[in-house]
Structure formats: C-alpha cells, structure tokens
C-alpha cells in the first residue's frame, strides 16, 4: 500500500511534526491533519485555485502537492494572514469592496493577492488579471475582486501592514 514518512513543516509560524502517508495531498494534510480548514478544495486537479497556499513564500496549489514534498517548508495559509487579531489589508479590502460572495474561493484569491502585492505594490489591471487569472470564482464575476485588489494595494502602500506574504509570528 502506501508508505509513511515523518515530516516537519512550519505553518503560519507554528512547527508541526507528523507522520503521514506518502500519498496524502498537502491540501488534505493542512485541512484535516492540522485542522486548518480555511484552505478550501474546489477541484482537486489544480485548475480552480481555491486551495492555493504559500510554500516558502511562493503560491502553490496544495491539491497538487503531497504533504511529504512540503517537509522542511514554511507555509502560509489564509489563517496566517491576520496579525494580532487584526485582518490583513487584503482581507479588509475584500470586505470593503464586496470582493466575495460565498467565500469558498476567497482564501485562494487572498493568498495570491498577498503574494502579488508583496512583489508589486502598485499592479496594473493587467498584472492583477495575470496574477489571479488562474483562480475560478463562480459568484462575483471578478469585477469586485479586481477592485478589492486595487484597494488592498492602496491600503498597503499607505502602510497599514507591509509584510504581507511572510508567515505570521507564532
């Protein structure tokens, strides 16, 4: 059957040591083994983007990675965006601009937006579309998401919270 492996990952600043099946996806590991349910699974074949998390600062589809591949990595999930009980500006901007409806795809959008704004504090509409064009949302029609990202960029340029894409402090 499947072999088991000992892994060590740091998620949102917290270190976890677990023994996992080789075939366990990173999405299932984060959601079910670590009980971090904010990372959602929409398609399990890497198209919809709902399960996007940061692995060593870069966005990855956690449904297309195995947990064992994340051994030694630092991960950031949507639960790691807020600090000290305050929402990350990207989260606040999505609320302010109605950038979500059902909210199921939203964690993936938030993670990719945080990554985008970390590297590009003033993205154009085309750059936003390039960064988020791999995410599916069935509710909003994307217009309010685009506006949310623009607002988040503005909020972050104005210095609410700058250090967007690195893991939160434990």
């Amino acid at each position: 059957m499947t072999t088991r492996h000992q892994i060590s990952v740091t998620v949102n600043g917290v270190n976890y040591q677990r023994e996992v099946d080789a075939r366990l996806t990173l999405a299932d590991f984060v959601r079910h083994d670590l009980s971090l349910g904010g990372t959602h699974v929409g398609c399990e074949h890497g198209v919809c983007g709902a399960c996007t998390i940061l692995v060593n600062g870069a966005s990855m589809r956690s449904c297309l990675m195995l947990a064992v591949q994340a051994d030694g990595a630092e991960l950031t999930t949507v639960e790691g965006l807020s600090r000290n009980g305050e929402l990350h500006p990207v989260q606040q901007a999505f609320i302010d601009r109605h950038g979500l409806q059902c909210g199921f795809c939203t964690p993936g959008f938030l993670i990719s937006t945080a990554e985008l704004l970390q590297g590009n504090p003033n993205p154009s509409d085309d750059e936003i579309a390039d960064a988020l064009g791999g995410h599916l949302c069935r509710c909003t029609g994307y217009q309010s998401i685009l506006e949310s990202v623009q607002l988040a960029a503005q909020m972050m340029r104005e210095g609410t919270i700058v250090d967007a894409a690195s893991p939160a402090e434990a």
């Binding site: 959601r31 971090l36 349910g37 904010g38 990372t39 959602h40 699974v41 999930t77 949507v78 639960e79 807020s82 929402l87 989260q91 606040q92 999505f94 609320i95 302010d96 109605h98 979500l100 059902c102 909210g103 199921f104 939203t106 964690p107 938030l110």
Partner: peptide, 18 residues
C-alpha cells in the same frame, strides 16, 4: 459591508468538509 464577510475572509466558516 456584509456581516458574513469577516468570517469568510478569515477562513473560519464551517463549510461541511471542515
């Protein structure tokens, strides 16, 4: 603003698979 949204952007809503 929607009262639904703070929980949704925080990833803390109890969707059934959670």
């Amino acid at each position: 603003r929607r009262i639904e949204d703070p929980a949704l952007v925080s990833g803390s809503v109890e969707f059934i698979d959670n």
